[in-house]
Amino acid sequence: MDDYKFLFKVVLVGNAGVGKTCLVRRFTQGLFPPGQGATIGVDFMIKTVDVGNEKVKLQIWDTAGQERFRSITQSYYRSAHALILVYDISCQPTFDCLPDWLREIEEYASSKVLRVLVGNKIDRDDREIPIQVGEEFAERHNMYFLETSAKESDNVERLFMQIAEDLMKQARMTNVPRYDPNSYNVDSSSQESSCCSRLT
């Protein structure tokens, strides 16, 4: 028997090669995998963390960035509690694609999903996207924002822990049973205000 009280689904999306798999492996296994191949379809990992005194089980879905897997990865948006949208701070095109990703999220994900923008690979010295640019983009789209390095383990733990804490807070607030699905417009608006606050 698993002794967890909360189970949350976290889905990582973003262009191929931005480091989604590395972020997940860093968080779940504490390592930076060498010679990491591109993800095929979608990968699945589990990590149970402690938030306060509670055990929280995070089900992490690491999706493939390559276009041809889109029909697989899209089907995981709907049940996600949190979506992590990743770009590579040293690769402008991965940032330029963000609006496309947001469109996908709009189309497939629940309106209540917690959305987090992550600029990865800050250990690299050929940065192309200044931190303010990422920050501003996140703010404009009501997302949390964080810069990470899967390689140096910067902010990775923090990223996932913050998500776990936030989702738990949300779950505690909405413990009223959702009797009428139309009523959730009400609490989604109250939740949006909390989305503006940032992790950094």
Binding site: I40, V42, S71, I72, S75, R78, S79, P181
Partner: peptide, 24 residues
């Protein structure tokens, strides 16, 4: 397996949204 999972996800969506919504 990935294909199976996607179709199962899709079945959830169709049943939970489209189908249940009609009944409701």
């Amino acid at each position: 397996l990935d294909g199976i999972c996607v179709i199962i996800n899709n079945a959830c969506r169709v049943l939970e949204n489209d189908y249940c919504d009609i009944l409701k």
